[in-house]
Nucleic acid binder design. Structure first.
Length: 476
RNA sequence: GGCGCCAUCGCCAAGUGGUAAGGCAGAGGUCUGCAAAACCUCCAUCUCCGGUUCAAAUCCGGAUGGCGCCUCCA
């Protein structure tokens, strides 16, 4: 398996620290607001990686944290007149609502910063002992001068950063680049006792403390959005490696951004889309399909049109699956005449995903299966038999699983309500109209049959006639 | 100003040295009462210029055009 390592900007052969086991840490969210589709992409990307590593038989320990204390949380809770704790709890709950709808697997651990104050303090003390941290009036800063290798992940060097104009001038710090490990609390702010007085953790230290606790000094994969490379991950490296003297992670994986209509998504541009808003008229698997059909490192452009294309593609796959299951008609699956064919597809899928999680190429395998199966199904009696149909359906679900696709029953997916129109026909009404049309067709009353079909069409229902009868689905 | 990424068919998107995956849309055909769906066939030489090589979309140099980071950010 090859993984593109942000540290060297190269694909590298993946070798876990411990054979068969993988430790993976992905930076989670700061819980002060609802998650947006940028979060959704990152979350889905690492969910897919997690799922795939498990599919490949690894024993994966996946850690994704919650940042539940920081400036934004404090400010927002003050605005609302509630405690920081209440605000964090609220958005952690909202986070889980979104994650469940997106079908994300639960990580092995989901630690919160404020549950690890002791570990954080210990880590800061270690850094102090090593001369890599110093206290000023209850604040503790990281001494960058003392850590060589700063900038190795982001490709920056200290001199360039110093010459940049945007560094805060703070006379109390030895260097403008030194960042806070521990912040003295102001009056009324949440705080925890520490050797430096009442205070709270700085921005980056929690990830160092928690990854060390759950995964050890050196683990396999550290992930996050590309925007986290600097300064967050760079600072994590300084903290963790400064303390342990060992590499923090062997592979750094960063996902690309989400643009909306070719513009950067931002609150100031007003093109900010939350997961929740999106899911009002977009099936979660369509969102996943959209994410997975693109390479995780490329930027993706989010637009109505692109979502529609994703929906059309996923529907095509579900349609094939639907036909296969119909053909299988309760057949057990298991081994069949298609064993070799399926194994070849499986190897194609694995080859794609083993190549730096190339999910777009993996999706192409699903389309190949779909096309081939449709062809055979069209042949009728001389084509695929029920046993093989059941086996292929099972296989499509098998490789869909790591991608988080094709996990619904096709009928549910194809006939789901969209949430767009408020007066949608009930399934029973649709069935009775179809029956009326069938009766008219039997009488060869084409005008009446077409009239009924037009009614359904106006209500967003598409009919498909076949030898076995008429099937319907909703258009979108 | 510093660091870095990207540019492949009308649209989306794989491919990083050996002669362009896949999806959407489009054209023609099969099927159908007519459709829809499905199937079959067709549909790009990879922004431009120069170089390396037997061979380049893939490597090097340059140009042009996008974008990101350098400040909280998935």
């Amino acid at each position: 398996m090859q993984i593109f390592n942000s540290m060297n900007r190269r694909k590298e052969e993946f070798v876990p620290v411990e054979p068969g086991k993988i430790g993976m840490y992905a930076c989670g969210v700061t819980v002060y607001d609802l998650c947006h589709i940028g979060h959704a992409r990152s979350l889905v990307v690492f969910d897919v990686i997690y799922r795939y590593l498990k599919y490949r038989g690894y024993d994966v320990t996946f850690v994704r944290n919650f940042t539940d204390i920081d400036d934004k949380i404090i400010n927002r809770s003050n605005e609302r007149g509630i405690t920081w704790k209440a605000l964090a709890e609220q958005y952690i709950e909202e986070f889980y609502v979104d994650m469940d709808r997106l079908g994300l697997l639960k990580p092995t651990y989901e630690p919160r910063a404020t549950d690890h104050i002791e570990e954080i303090i210990n880590l800061v003390r270690q850094l102090e002992e090593k001369g890599l941290a110093y206290e000023v009036d209850g604040d503790v800063y990281y001494r960058l001068q003392g850590f060589k290798g700063y900038g190795k992940l982001s490709g920056k060097n200290i001199d360039d950063l110093l010459s940049g104009a945007r560094v805060d001038i703070d006379d109390r710090k030895e260097s403008p680049l030194d960042f806070a490990l521990w912040k003295r609390s102001k009056v009324g702010e949440p705080s925890w006792p520490s050797p430096w007085g009442e205070g709270r953790p700085g921005w980056h230290i929690e990830c160092s403390a928690m990854s060390q606790k759950f995964l050890g000094d050196t683990f396999d994969i550290h992930g996050g959005g590309q925007d986290l490379i600097f300064p967050h991950h760079e600072n994590e490296i300084a903290q963790s490696e400064g303390a342990s003297g060992k590499p923090l992670a062997n592979y750094w994986v960063h996902n690309g951004f989400v643009n909306i209509d070719k513009e950067k998504m931002s609150k100031s541009l007003g093109n900010f889309l939350t997961i929740r808003e999106l899911l009002e008229d977009c099936h979660p698997e369509v969102l996943r399909f959209f994410v997975v059909a693109n390479h995780y490192r490329s930027p993706i452009d989010f637009s109505q049109e692109n979502v529609a294309v994703a929906a059309a593609g996923l529907e095509r796959l579900y349609q094939s699956l639907d036909r296969l299951l119909e053909k299988a008609a309760g057949s057990a699956g298991g081994s069949s005449s298609l064993d070799d064919r399926i194994e070849a597809w499986r190897q194609d899928f694995i080859a794609a995903m083993d190549d730096d999680f190339n999910s777009a190429a993996a999706v192409a395998v699903l389309f190949e299966v779909s096309k081939e199966m449709n062809r055979q199904l069209d042949e009728g009696e001389t084509g695929i038999d029920p046993q093989a149909a059941a086996q292929v359906a099972e296989f499509m679900r098998e490789i869909g699983e790591p991608l988080g696709l094709l996990q619904e029953t096709p009928r549910d997916f194809l006939q789901r309500t969209t949430g767009k129109a408020d007066n949608q026909l009930e399934a029973a009404e649709i069935e009775s109209l179809i029956a009326a049309r069938a009766a008219a067709r039997k009488e060869r009353d084409w005008a009446e049959a077409d009239r009924v079909r037009d009614i359904l069409d106006e209500n967003g229902i598409i009919l498909k006639d076949s030898a076995e009868g008429t099937k319907w689905q909703r258009k979108r």
